[in-house]
Simulated scan of single mutants.
Amino acid sequence: MRRRATGSMSVKSKWTKTKWLRSDRVLRRSVPDTKRFTRSSLEVMTARYKTVYFKPTGGTGGNGIARVKRLGPGRFQIRKDLSTFEASSPRALYARLKRIARGRSYLLQKGIALQTSRGRPFDLRMVVQRTRNGKWVPSVMFVKLGKPNKIVTNYHQGGTLAKIDPTLRRTGCTPKQINRYKRRLAALGMRTARCFERRSGRFKELGLDVALDRDGRLWILEVNTRPGFSALKSLKDKSLYRTIVRYGKQYGRTR
């Protein structure tokens, strides 16, 4: 953990942040099953779930992530970037993932079947920030639409940003349902802020990546302690960018 020039604490370890979330009795229900990558945990996770994500503990921007799909008894497909591999046994799967990891620490996370909009999978970003007087506020929320054939939705991996209301309308949500999702997102953000604040009072901003699954359930995929601002400039409507910068300036961050 370290404190950035903005005055806001930065925590890179996804495992540390996952443990914090799971320590909260409310938030733990919204965290997908996640384990440290070991040979035994890989066997457990691939037996339990058809799809498992392989994520670097300290990675950012969707880099280094692979998706593992169980094709049948002892057969697996590994997808990373635009490459696809097959493994014909749990042992071969473990060996392939070890090569991808190259000695770095990795996590295994239950795969969530993302809701789609016009055929593109998406997840939701909820940003909470502190005001000058130390109060947490849910400042902005938006959608990250995945690029076709990519396993992650990140902007730096070819994804695009969009506003929540029109995206959810295209999935068939009514205005009432959209407002309910937005209230639930804000509540998750504020609960996460309080959870992290119990660990340190030096957090000033958090960005939650939240999956909406095909059953309408929200899942916290991860929490960013240095959420990106600049990608919001790609939206035609600059109001979200102006809002996030306005709050950021109150604790010394301008971009």
Rank of each mutant, 00 (worst) to 15 (best):
R2D: 12
T6M: 11
S10C: 15
T18N: 10
T18Y: 15
D24I: 15
V26C: 08
P32E: 07
P32W: 13
P32H: 05
P32D: 10
T34H: 01
F37H: 00
S40T: 07
A47G: 11
A47E: 05
K50F: 11
V52G: 06
T57L: 14
T57D: 13
T60M: 14
N63D: 05
N63S: 15
I65L: 01
G74C: 08
G74S: 09
D81Y: 00
E86H: 02
A87P: 04
A95V: 10
R99W: 08
I100A: 03
L107H: 00
L108S: 02
F122D: 01
D123A: 03
V127K: 00
V128Y: 01
R130T: 03
T131W: 09
R132M: 05
K135H: 13
K135N: 04
W136M: 03
V143R: 02
L145V: 12
G146C: 14
K150R: 11
V152E: 01
V152F: 01
H156P: 07
Q157T: 02
K163D: 09
K163V: 06
P166C: 14
P166Y: 03
L168T: 14
R170Y: 12
Y181F: 13
L185I: 15
A187W: 05
M190Q: 06
A193F: 02
F196H: 08
G201A: 03
R202P: 10
F203A: 13
D213P: 06
G216T: 13
R217S: 08
E222W: 02
V223C: 14
F229E: 09
S230T: 03
L232K: 08
D237T: 05
K238Y: 06
S239C: 00
G252K: 07
R255S: 12
R255H: 06
